[in-house]
Computed example of a mutant assay.
Amino acid sequence: MENDDNKQVKKPPMTDEERLALAAKLDKDLDDFIENLPKRQPSTEPLDENWLEEFDKHPFFMKKVPEPGEELHPLYEGLQQLKYDPNENTPEELALSYKEDGNFNFKHKNYRLAVIGYSEGIKVRCGNAEIEASLYNNRSAAHWFLQNYRSSLRDAESALKYNPNHEKAMQRAANCCLKTQKFDDCIKFCDRILDKIKNADISEVRKQAVNGKKAAERNERKKQAEIKKKTQEENMLIDELSKLGVKFNRSNLSLLQPQFAELEMHHVHLNKDKILIWPVVFMYPEHKTMDFVQQFPCNSTFQEQLELVFDEKPAWDQNGEYKIENLNVYYEYDAKKRVKRVGKQKMLSEVLQQPSFVLTAGTPCFLITVSGSEAEKQFLSSY
């Protein structure tokens, strides 16, 4: 039997008044201690102009994470090395540290920095499927906000390899497929989600994918029909050019495309009456200028076209010499070493059929001079 003298006496709990009195006594004791400390003489040295900047760089007081490439405070650098030192951390701890960095930047909408953080975590290859899936899913989210939809889709698919039931990764994969017009894959992802849960947003995504697929198929049919129509028109054009005897490269129809900017939208074609319509250039060597005839029917004569061109006297013909009856028409041939005169009553088709005429740059070109003029004599002497 224990002696009553040895029994421990249980103290009653402190009252509120006693607690306040004790706190006041501790405050007074601390003030007295600080007051009795040896006094230091104030420094007479001026403060460094950059003291506030240095203060902000200190890891205990900094207000933001340093940017990549920015000079680090030695203490911050030391803390970083400690945090990311593979000798001090397991692969899982390292991966989680990088994930925390990515989450911090993601929260503050620094999505590019978030991508860097998650990427570093992925590089660790920690072996934990849950962490790996989370890193890929989070990086997918960062890419999504950067509108890098293909990268976002790849990361979402990688997350699903580690966790096939990762709901957020599956939803983002569906949305990315919709953005990148991978409609069949989008529908598959949506169906996987809707087989498990009802989700109005995913149902809407699936609906858009179905409609997008129908529109894409309709556009593809339209495109193929246009290609078929164009091919038929090209074949008809080739047949007419062959009948006419025009010399051109059948295997490269781009050579029929006019090289003059003023005529590039007016290449040779067949009208509704199956008449070849050509873009033609009239050059005036004496005045170093030219006219662009956008539509010269093959069955039209040079007389008819010149009358249209010279319906009004051109500003450069100050002497009024360029009258239809005074004009001669020529074309160059034999690699431009010679010229041949064309009768104004000739149709364009008759000229194009001549053995010496070779079509170049998709545009028949003709030289116009004043008959018997000194300019014409000088022009002809150059050949």
Score class of each variant (00 low, 15 high):
9 V>P: 11
12 P>F: 14
19 R>S: 09
20 L>C: 04
22 L>V: 13
26 L>P: 00
30 L>Y: 13
32 D>Q: 13
40 R>L: 12
44 T>V: 12
44 T>E: 12
46 P>A: 03
49 E>D: 15
51 W>C: 15
54 E>Q: 12
55 F>E: 03
57 K>F: 00
60 F>M: 13
71 E>K: 15
72 L>R: 09
73 H>N: 13
80 Q>T: 08
81 Q>A: 14
81 Q>N: 15
88 E>K: 12
90 T>A: 06
94 L>Y: 04
98 Y>A: 06
110 N>I: 02
112 R>F: 14
117 G>W: 00
119 S>P: 06
119 S>F: 03
121 G>Q: 02
123 K>Q: 14
126 C>A: 08
127 G>Y: 06
128 N>H: 04
133 A>G: 08
133 A>H: 01
134 S>K: 05
135 L>I: 09
136 Y>C: 02
137 N>I: 00
141 A>I: 01
147 Q>R: 14
147 Q>W: 09
149 Y>Q: 02
152 S>G: 07
153 L>K: 01
155 D>Y: 05
156 A>L: 00
157 E>A: 08
160 L>V: 09
163 N>T: 08
164 P>G: 04
166 H>T: 03
168 K>Q: 05
171 Q>V: 10
173 A>F: 01
177 C>L: 04
178 L>T: 00
178 L>P: 00
179 K>D: 01
181 Q>F: 01
181 Q>K: 10
182 K>D: 07
182 K>G: 02
186 C>S: 05
193 I>M: 06
200 A>Y: 07
205 V>A: 11
208 Q>L: 10
211 N>W: 06
211 N>Q: 14
212 G>T: 08
212 G>C: 08
214 K>I: 10
219 N>H: 13
224 Q>V: 10
227 I>F: 09
229 K>Y: 08
232 Q>I: 15
238 I>A: 05
239 D>F: 12
239 D>C: 09
239 D>T: 14
242 S>C: 06
245 G>V: 05
246 V>D: 01
252 N>C: 09
259 Q>V: 11
267 H>T: 11
268 V>M: 05
269 H>W: 04
278 W>K: 00
279 P>M: 03
281 V>A: 00
292 F>S: 12
295 Q>L: 09
301 T>C: 08
303 Q>G: 04
304 E>F: 09
307 E>R: 10
308 L>W: 07
311 D>I: 14
312 E>N: 13
318 Q>V: 15
318 Q>P: 08
320 G>W: 07
321 E>C: 12
327 L>E: 05
336 K>F: 11
342 V>N: 02
345 Q>I: 00
346 K>D: 05
350 E>I: 02
350 E>C: 05
355 P>Y: 06
357 F>D: 04
383 Y>E: 09
383 Y>K: 08
